[in-house]
Structures are given as C-alpha cells and as structure tokens.
Amino acid sequence: MTFADPDRRSGIQDGYLALVARRRLYGGLTLLIFVLLMSSGFVIADGRNAGGFWSGLSQLGDFPAGVISEAWQKRTQLPAHMLTYFPALLETINIAAVSTLLGALFGLVLSLLSTRGLALWPRLTPLFRRIMDIMRAVPEIVIALVLIFVMGGGPVPAMIAIAFHTSGALGKLFSEVSENADLKPVEGLSSVGANWSQRMLLGVLPQVAPNYLSYALLRFEINIRASAILGFVGAGGIGYELKNAMSWGQGKFDEAAAIFLLLFGTIVVFDQLSSIVRNRLTKGAAL
C-alpha cells in the first residue's frame, strides 16, 4: 500500500466521498418517500373520516369532561358500580387466562412439532409452520364474530378466538426458543429408550420453561386487552357492559367511568405483576 502516493490517496478520498454522497441521497430519498406517504395518508384518512381532524381536535376534551363531571356528581355511587361490574371484569380476566393457557398448550405442541431437531415428524415441520402462520394471521374478531353467530353471545366464542390466535403467536415464539435448546439431554434420553413425549417433557421443557413462561405472561397481558375489546363487539365480559353503558349515553356515564377505572386498574396491575415475574424468570432468581 502506498498511502504516500497522492494520486492513490485522492482516489480513495473521492471514492469515499462519492459513497457518502450516494448514501445521503438514498437516505434522503427514503425519508422523502416516507414523509410523502405519511402526509398523503393523513390527508386521505382525514378526507374519508366523518369528522375532520381539526374540528375534532377542539372537541377532544368534551367526552372525557362529560364523563368526569357526571362521575364526580355521582361519586358516591362509584364503588357500588364497581362492585356491580366486578363479575364482568372477572369474566374478561378469565377469558384471557383460559385462552392464554389453552393457547400456550397448543402452541407448545405446535412449536415442538415444527422445530428442527425436535420434531416428531421432521418432514412435516414446514406444514406445522404454515399452520402457525395462518393461525397467527387470523384476527380474533373474525373467529369471534362467526362463533357468536353459531353459539350465541358469551365468553366461549371470545375464548376460542383468542386461544386460536394465541396458539399461533406463542407457537412461533416457543419454537424460536426451543431451536436454541441444548440437544444433549434429548440424545441422552433417547439412548435410554425414551419416546418422543418423554424426551420433550424431560429433556427440552426444563431448559426452556422459564422463557416459555415469560412469553406466556406477556401474552396474558395482551389477551386481557383483547378480551376486553372483543366484549365490545358482543362476546361478553366488561367490554359488553361498557358498550351498553356507552350506548345509553349521558346519564350512565358514571357507570362508564366505573368500568374505565376497573379496566385501567386491571391492565396496570397485571402489567406490573407480569413484568416483575418476567424479570425474575429471565434473570434466574427464585420466584
């Protein structure tokens, strides 16, 4: 290398500067496209909305103010309302818990069947992966609405809908974890004649259980929100009560406020609880 050679040096410099210029050009173009997409998207969304953005912005505070003032006027009734809606809240939490549980169990089986090195039928791993992709892609509302038509309203359609989606979502995360599992215990077990389920139960699960549990808890947080929102489209629980209170409008805003508070409290409490447990799980400390 002859860096002392001025021609050579200026050649390198020019090349570098050209590279930087091109990078900046690409970066600038990407940014420009992004800004154009965002602003034109905003204009289109604003145009297709019933109320405009700027007129809506000034009314933003009206609804919360109405709810808060009514709730404040009838503040003595709030605890009673909360007690009334507690069973509905319990149903929402139960929907989330069962669907997480069932989803985790199905996801566990699917993930083990679709992980290289662990699968019972290695040739079928792509098939199980596809199945998980499709299960993940189906939004909960689609299954919930169809099942409500068949089974009538209530917690079961929401439970099945969320469990279906959860199996796919957790299955993918689980299989990413178990791909990194150490295969030596599995080999050891197979050398003493253990069958597939024994190998998985005794060789793989103890290694991956903390990570699985932490993902399942994260999913539980998400599922509480999902089950509340599905209740709003008719699948029971606190969301359904909220919808009824809201469609009544003024006069039942105190009940809506009680439900808001219950929902908010539940989400915050479970978020905090699960984040504490997850921290301990991933850092290996005892529970």
């Binding site: 969304a45 297709r48 909305n49 109320g51 809506g56 933003l60 609804f63």
Partner: peptide
C-alpha cells in the same frame, strides 16, 4: 371510544 366521540367514524 373516546376519540370516535370527537372525530366521528372513519379511518382517521
């Protein structure tokens, strides 16, 4: 729920 009270139905 809160935003749809202010902005009405629609994508925005």
């Amino acid at each position: 729920i809160m935003l749809s009270r202010a902005f009405g139905p629609g994508p925005l």
